[in-house]
């Protein structure tokens, strides 16, 4: 399950936001290491900095200081264009609100991720297996408004992994789902981790959801507390 070189390696990571003349210290020196193939849950109260960590790891915002690398790629020195490149192929996102494009069908939502990454050939057999695993094979021609929350989140997972990212980032993936769908989505994430060795970092409030991970990391006031 684990590899010698960590998938995520973070040392003394700080992030400061400037709101007018006020400085907001969202991360105050985070140290974290996640091995390749590991499934880690990050939990903590609101304002603990877990979303900021998610955004930095996803290349959506640059860190202020410290070091952070994903699969050996240093995020601190990355330009905006390099972070965009990281999002194309290096990381996949699953959001609480699914974030599917409403004008596109499930298939098109997945295809656009491939298109952005510059993959235009046929999808891999492995991906077709994942679609089966996700149980959305019969719903692929529907637009998000015709899909249930659980189905939308499965499509979002399929979209997140279609380009074989090194890291799958999930931000409260069960936050909008009922308990039955929550469990189904969490099982899917665990399956992806176990069957494909997909490294997953999941942000969650929910202790039950966190229990699906190999390891739970708790955050408070911009630091990891255990």
């Amino acid at each position: 399950m684990t590899d010698e070189r960590p998938m995520i390696e973070i040392h003394g990571l700080k992030k400061v936001f400037h709101t007018g003349e006020v400085e907001v210290h969202a991360l105050r020196g985070v140290d974290l290491s996640v091995a390749k193939g590991e499934f880690v849950a990050v939990s903590g109260p609101s304002g603990s900095g877990k979303s900021t960590l998610f955004h930095i790891l996803g290349g959506l915002t640059p860190p202020t200081s410290g070091s952070v690398s994903i699969a050996g790629r240093d995020l601190l020195s990355m330009t905006e264009a390099e972070r965009t490149e990281l999002r194309k192929n290096g990381v996949g996102f699953v959001f609480q609100k699914y974030n599917l494009l409403p004008t596109l069908t499930a298939t098109e939502n997945i295809e656009i991720a491939r298109d952005i990454a510059g993959h235009h050939g046929p999808r891999s057999a492995q991906f077709e297996e994942i679609v089966k695993l996700l149980g959305i094979g019969g719903r692929m021609d529907h637009k998000p408004r015709a899909l249930s929350g659980g189905e939308q989140q499965r499509v979002a997972i399929a979209r997140a992994i279609v380009n074989d990212p090194a890291l799958l980032l999930a931000d409260e993936p069960t936050g909008n789902l009922d308990s039955e769908n929550s469990e189904a989505v969490l099982k899917i994430l665990r399956d992806l981790n176990e069957r494909l060795g997909q490294t997953i970092l999941m942000i969650t409030h929910d202790a039950e959801a966190a229990s699906f991970a190999h390891r739970i990391v708790r955050m408070k006031d911009g630091r990891i507390v255990n």
């Binding site: 996803g58 959506l60 999002r87 194309k88 959001f95 494009l101 656009i112 991720a113 952005i116 990454a117």
Partner: peptide, 11 residues
């Protein structure tokens, strides 16, 4: 939606 595209790596 533009945010989603950016998250997916759209330049």
């Amino acid at each position: 939606e533009i945010g989603i595209l950016k998250a997916l790596g759209a330049s």
